[in-house]
């Protein structure tokens, strides 16, 4: 009975986890370079950026929305931060500027959607273009590079032998999980995605909470920008292009329904890791990037097909 309800509540996530473990097992057999500590640190570090963006995407998708602007917001945050660092603004303040820029753009999305009643697809499509345009205007299309070692901590440093980006990712997931399961905002995210009208009629301030959800997505894009900028030691105006698709893919592989109202943060982490492991494994095996793209696309489709098949069986 206990086992049964465990499966009922987390079945989709367990399924994805089994997929990840199976994939890892296959790669373990195929290449000796895969199952090593250094390679897993490598994978988790590579996954961190997409995984963090995907957290915001998960919130947005559970609320029955979509955020196409994450990549552009990432570029904007990165450039704001890099510009501030170059202008000798103290590190903490520069970080704050970058994160604030992300949060602000996200909130703009939220306001357009909740007050302006724009469909999320349209609002964030617009923001994607606007933010990218602003970045190119600010930078004249040129990257801003070369930062003090204090900033590079976000890429290079380790704590307890684990790289800082991985710690940050873990922390983001822990907080996001708690927010989603233990706070009003989290509860309302599910409620809005499940039935917005009923949620409004239950007295929930839907506009505010929706704005916050998109704000969080923007904020996390800003956080991803910190990691990316530190990693490349450069803030590129073209950074983050198409990152929205990777984030959506991780979320969907992780079992979040695009229809809203359903999904778990742990699933998204597994989804992001599946993508990371696939890329890493196919690199190790020397498979061409064309095949990689095909495989990742197939995994997305299969994951969602399985999800639907399982749902049908449960009813």
């Amino acid at each position: 009975m206990r086992m049964h309800s465990l499966w009922q509540q987390h079945g989709r996530q367990l399924g994805t986890l089994i997929g990840l473990l199976g994939l890892s097992a296959v790669l373990w057999i195929l290449t000796p370079h895969f199952m090593t500590i250094s390679n897993w640190l490598n994978i988790t570090q590579q996954t961190a950026i997409n995984a963090i963006i995907a957290v915001g995407m998960t919130f947005v998708i559970i609320s029955a929305g979509i955020d196409l602007s994450v990549g552009s917001i990432l570029a904007l945050s990165g450039v704001v931060m890099a510009g501030a660092l170059k202008a000798d603004v103290p590190l903490s303040l520069a970080l704050l500027f970058g994160l604030a820029a992300g949060f602000f753009c996200g909130c703009m999305n939220g306001v357009l959607i909740s007050r302006g009643k724009l469909p999320p697809f349209i609002a964030t499509l617009g923001m994607m273009s606007v933010a990218r345009g602003v970045v190119l205007i600010i930078t004249d299309g040129r990257p801003i590079s070369g930062f003090a070692p204090s900033f590079r901590v976000f890429a290079n440093a380790e704590f307890l032998a684990i790289p800082i980006p991985v710690w940050i990712m873990a922390l983001v997931y822990l907080i996001a999980h708690l927010v989603l399961t233990r706070t009003k905002l989290g509860r309302y995210t599910y409620a809005m995605g499940g039935n917005e009208e009923a949620t409004v009629l239950s007295g929930v301030h839907v506009r505010f909470h929706k704005t916050m959800i998109y704000g969080i997505s923007g904020l996390l894009s800003g956080l991803a920008a910190v990691l990316l900028t530190a990693r490349l030691n450069s803030a590129q105006p073209i950074a983050g292009m198409m990152y929205e698709l990777d984030a959506i893919a991780a979320t969907v592989i992780g079992g979040t329904s695009l229809l809203g109202g359903e999904g778990r943060i742990a699933g998204t982490l597994i989804g992001a890791l599946i993508m990371g492991v696939l890329r890493n494994g196919l690199n190790l095996l020397g498979v061409s990037s064309f095949v990689q793209q095909t495989v990742i696309g197939a995994v997305i489709i299969v994951a969602v097909l399985l999800d639907m098949a399982m749902k049908k069986r449960r009813i």
Partner: peptide
């Protein structure tokens, strides 16, 4: 369509207005 969030648990629906 207006009273319940059908895919949420009983618990969440009961407490939705009084969180």
């Amino acid at each position: 369509s207006q009273g319940l969030v059908l895919n949420l648990p009983v618990l969440d629906n009961i407490c939705l207005s009084s969180l």
